[in-house]
């Protein structure tokens, strides 16, 4: 039943978006189940990709399974479009699909990301694909999957609360600053991929569809639009995000995640937006001539 669809053969010898149709079908089924069971990690037959494991193979497979010729793709790593891994992945999809790519969050229909959620609020109809290194939030507490699977089945997350409470006892607050645990739809404990906890609130009731792909670990999970995502906390120690004493030194933003850039060997530093598109858009608005 192989049909030769020459229009679909962008890169010679490879199917549209690299993956064969059977693999895409298997991933698509996993994605639908992931959407139906928010926060639950659906096992899938992750394929060996031409990029190394740990470098976004899960996100790439999810994107490859959902991308169509009319999509506009944005790829970021650390919030930025121009880090080498983001460039490489964007190039991979440009070569294998021929779709339009963009750096503008608002223009994109699909955003593949590593470690950040854009500052510009996402809208209904957009899909954000997270690259996930370790999908299992309970892994550091219990390395055996046979056990963590039971804990998820029973919704038994006491161990996670104990761990966080021990943090409070030791440090006076919860020590996790990224990869901060969340409960999705008041049921599943979920690892938000290592985004800084600054980004956690953006997951809550987000209008966009959020998909998570872990290639090496062979899991896909999802947060549908308008779904409750609660960062774990305690009544006497409510969840808080990081705040900076500085504004972005390029665009003046006070509401964005800031990267600390070392300027010289005497420890001179400056703080700039990690989201390069957000920063640029703000600067363009302030000084249209410069753009």
């Amino acid at each position: 039943m192989r049909i030769s669809t020459s229009a679909a053969d962008t890169m010679e010898g490879y199917n549209f978006a690299y993956l064969d149709e059977h693999t895409k079908r298997m991933i698509r089924r996993a994605i639908l189940k992931a959407i139906a069971i928010p926060g639950y990690q659906v096992p899938f037959g992750s394929r060996e990709m031409p990029l190394p494991y740990g470098w976004g193979t899960g996100g790439i497979q999810v994107t490859a399974a959902i991308i169509g010729p009319d999509d506009v793709l944005k790829v970021i790593d650390q919030g930025s479009d121009d880090t080498t891994n983001a460039v490489n992945i964007r190039r991979f999809f440009a070569r294998t699909t021929g779709v339009k790519t963009t750096e503008r969050t608002g223009e994109a229909t699909i955003i593949q990301t590593r470690h950040r959620i854009p500052e510009t609020p996402l809208r209904d109809g957009q899909i954000i694909v997270y690259q996930v290194p370790i999908p299992e939030m309970l892994r550091w507490l219990e390395p055996r999957e046979a056990e963590t699977r039971k804990m998820h089945a029973l919704g038994e997350y006491g161990a996670m609360h104990v761990k966080l409470y021990e943090d409070i006892a030791h440090h006076g607050h919860i020590a996790a600053t990224y990869d901060y645990p969340v409960i999705v739809n008041e049921r599943y404990l979920m690892r938000p991929s290592p985004i800084p906890k600054f980004d956690n609130p953006k997951m809550h009731m987000n209008p966009a569809l959020q998909l998570f792909g872990a290639g090496r670990e062979k899991r896909i999970y999802a947060v549908p639009p308008y779904t409750a995502v609660r960062s774990l906390d305690f009544e006497d120690h409510p969840f808080e995000t990081q705040r900076w004493e500085h504004a972005c030194e390029l665009c003046g933003a006070t509401d964005s995640f800031l990267d600390e850039v070392i300027m010289d060997d005497r420890g001179k530093r400056m703080f700039v937006c990690s989201d390069s598109d957000y920063c640029l858009a703000r600067r363009e608005k302030q000084q249209p001539a410069v753009a």
Binding site: E48, P52, Y53, G54, W55, T57, D77, Q78, G79, T83, N85, R114, H115, R116, P133, H171, A175, T177, Y178, D179, P194, I195, P196, K197, F198, R216, Q242, F257, L258, D259, E260, S274
Partner: peptide, 28 residues
């Protein structure tokens, strides 16, 4: 292939998460 990829992915930028840790360590 899995092990090599994941060990070497530590080469990729992690400065966002590191920034979060920096803030925490300074606060502590």
């Amino acid at each position: 292939v899995e092990a090599s990829g994941f060990v070497q992915h530590l080469k990729l930028p992690h400065y966002v998460d590191f920034q979060s840790e920096l803030e925490l360590v300074r606060k502590l």
